[in-house]
């Protein structure tokens, strides 16, 4: 058995740590910097002799008030909460029965339906966002209303539809692993199909339901391109932030812009710190990315 040269071993270790620390810095420093910058006055960003690395002279929380009230980030925040919550509820109410029926019952056409839902996995929303927009605006024109565009319920419905394929795939994969005996016992006890599903089977699928909620919360909360395309007054936080960034950059109101950034990422970061273990574990279960 030959021993490794201790010097090369040390050099190896140093390189390894340097790479890890470089990556850590490249993530933590910009994120922390945005938090810091959100408390700065405007004069600390522009003009000669300003140092972007300097700490704020005072905690200018006024930036947050301006962002929330004048830049309407408060309104967009509320819209995002409504749309995300509604989309999650719609998704679960629609995906759970479908996944359950597809995985636990044998019926004609099951195979075709399974394939059809799987095919939905291959369609990315970026390709079809314009046809969806056209469909909604044509419906508006045909009916002489302006109900279908800039509607938070429609947006939630589209969000839910766009993740149905993935959620059904994940949930039915889990339902398949549950033993058959539960349902038979329930039927013998006189439970109907609906009661068996709601009272017995769905509660058992809790872990995979949690995974779906976590991932879809992130993707709905962060979603940008659909909301940007079909929403206007009732837009969500990500679009609000994009507009805020465009406006404040030309007006060089950097403090407010960074306050807006913090408003969007803080809820997600807090959630992440709480659930990071389930999240990274669930990822290998689902393993899909949009």
């Amino acid at each position: 058995m030959k021993k490794q040269n201790p010097v090369t071993k040390i050099i190896f270790k140093v390189i390894v740590y340097a790479a890890l620390i470089a990556m850590t810095i490249s993530i933590l420093v910009p994120v922390a910097w945005v938090f810091m910058a959100s408390f700065k006055r405007n004069a600390e960003f522009i003009g000669q002799g300003t140092n972007p690395w300097a700490l704020p002279e005072q905690l200018q929380y006024q930036n947050y008030i301006t962002a929330f009230v004048d830049a309407e980030m408060g309104k967009f925040f509320l819209n995002s909460v409504i749309v995300t919550a509604l989309a999650l509820i719609l998704l679960l109410v629609i995906a759970l029965p479908a996944a359950y029926a597809l995985s636990r019952f044998d019926f004609k056409g099951r195979k075709i339906l399974n394939i059809a839902f799987m095919a939905g996995l291959f369609v990315n929303i970026n390709y079809i966002v314009v046809p969806i927009f056209l469909m909604l605006s044509d419906t508006n024109k045909a009916l002489g209303v302006d109900f279908f565009l800039d509607n938070r319920f429609i947006l939630s419905l589209i969000y839910a539809s766009s993740s149905l394929s993935f959620s059904i795939y994940l949930l039915s994969g889990y339902f398949k692993t549950l033993p058959k005996g539960f349902e038979e016992a329930a039927y013998i006890d006189g439970c109907g199909y609906l009661k068996t599903m709601v009272k017995i089977m769905i509660p058992m699928a809790k872990p995979s339901i949690l995974t779906v909620i976590l991932f879809q919360f992130l993707s709905f909360w962060n979603e940008y391109i659909i909301a940007f395309t079909i929403m206007d007054e009732h837009s969500t936080l990500a679009v609000g932030l994009k507009n805020l960034m465009a406006v404040e950059r030309t007006a060089t109101n950097y403090g407010i812009m960074y306050a807006g950034l913090v408003i969007v990422m803080l809820p997600v970061l807090i959630l992440y710190i709480c659930v990071q273990k389930q999240l990274t574990k669930g990822m290998t279960l689902g393993g899909l990315k949009g």
């Binding site: 995906a95 029965p97 029926a101 339906l113 939905g120 369609v123 079809i128 046809p131 469909m135 394929s165």
Partner: peptide, 24 residues
Amino acid sequence: FVFFCIAPAAILVTLFIFIPTINV
């Protein structure tokens, strides 16, 4: 029962995924 379980999902996926894809 199976029909009512699957119909909403099938309708939504058809309406917001498949039809727009065909339209592309």
